[in-house]
Design a protein around this nucleic acid. Structure first.
Lengths: 204, 204
DNA sequence: TAGATTGTTAATCGATTAACAATC
DNA sequence: TAGATTGTTAATCGATTAACAATC
């Protein structure tokens, strides 16, 4: 793509979307950068700056059309398209993610779970269960957009590399180690770091 | 406290700690800002800037003593002290967090879980189970540092406010809505936003 | 000693905020 | 029309990087 969007802006994009979704649910049809800014704890200038990086979606003197801007955000984020996912590691977190099934709103569908042991996963509903040895074969036959890594820290990098080598372009990592790859993007959800920051901030 | 540490720095503090912990485990005794910077994908200048905000922990010409700096970081982060936590909401994520028990490294102990229904939680080990109606009474008698919010989006703010009003100073929020309070610090783990960013980045 | 590396000051870069003409 | 609000340019602010004297 053309212009490089800064991490700081990318950080805020989902927040815009969520807020617009909420407004839309509440039948609100128009919104100003000022209103958005108050809801998100940022400045109106920043809202306009951010949005204008993708185009002029508002109307001078009027504001933004909620549904229209929501749909635009959906498109910008890429969540208007369906994405398929697999979970690597059927432990507590892996299972929680699978049975949560709360990512339908983002159009993400978890299709399968892989683990070294599969016995304890037989009862998990709505998802295929495989031994990790079948990973290669599975990915060859099932186009997969996202690999969710929920294995132990020690195996996270190895498993992630394995799926990246097999062509997966997006890694959603829940192991407490930051992953970076060439040829794939990663989002690291590091709970342990988040907890440390919380403790730090709570005493400062 | 005296100087205000920027969010950007706070973001990195746990990463320094984790890396130092790893070095320590591997019996490495000394490390330079350059080595740290390579491991963490930042610049050596930044490492020195960050650390020097808290004091001069290194030795000119020599570098940093791993164990010493690790202990300093532990103290700065506040994880040298034990912290108690409760979980509000015994659903999938709540249960996963409880049984994970992986926060011992941060000296955090989950003591109790609260839910509207407690029947399904009877089997959860190592933690007391209460009905939310007992929250007030519990907090009066059990000093609690951290409340982990893992209820539905709709109830997150209400429950968080309730514990904040009861004196809890740190909120670790897993509901897909950002929380902010006066008089308490919050860390929001927003998986849904993270997923959107992943999808955005994977197509750009 | 010579090389390495710190802590800190100054320079640069990028992100946020302010201002305002355009216009509904 | 007058008030509101956009998109954008310029000004400000803060964070990152570079440079270097001090020194082990």
């Amino acid at each position: 793509m053309d212009k490089q969007i800064s991490d700081r802006v990318v950080e805020r994009l989902p927040k815009y979307y969520r807020y617009l979704q909420e407004l839309s649910k509440n039948q609100i049809q128009r919104v100003s950068s000022k209103t958005i800014s108050k809801a998100l704890n940022i400045t109106a200038s920043q809202v306009r700056q951010d949005l204008s990086q993708f185009g002029g979606f508002g109307q001078t003197g009027v504001g933004y059309n909620v549904e229209y801007l929501r749909d635009i955000m959906k498109e910008i984020l890429g969540i208007n398209n369906v994405h398929t996912a697999i979970v690597i590691g059927g432990g507590r977190i892996g299972q929680a993610l699978i049975s949560y099934q709360g990512f339908r709103g983002e159009n993400v569908y978890i299709k399968a779970v892989f683990d070294v042991y599969t016995e304890h996963l037989k009862s998990v509903k709505g998802v295929e269960v495989y031994n990790v040895s079948e990973l290669e074969n599975y990915l060859k036959n099932n186009p997969t957009d996202i690999a969710i890594i929920s294995v132990q820290k020690e195996n996270a990098e190895k498993m992630a590399k394995r799926v990246v080598d097999l062509g997966v372009k997006a890694i959603w990592n829940f192991a407490p180690i930051d992953l970076y790859f060439d040829g794939a993007v990663c989002e690291n959800i590091n709970m342990s770091e988040s907890l440390m920051r919380l403790i730090y901030k709570s005493k400062v």
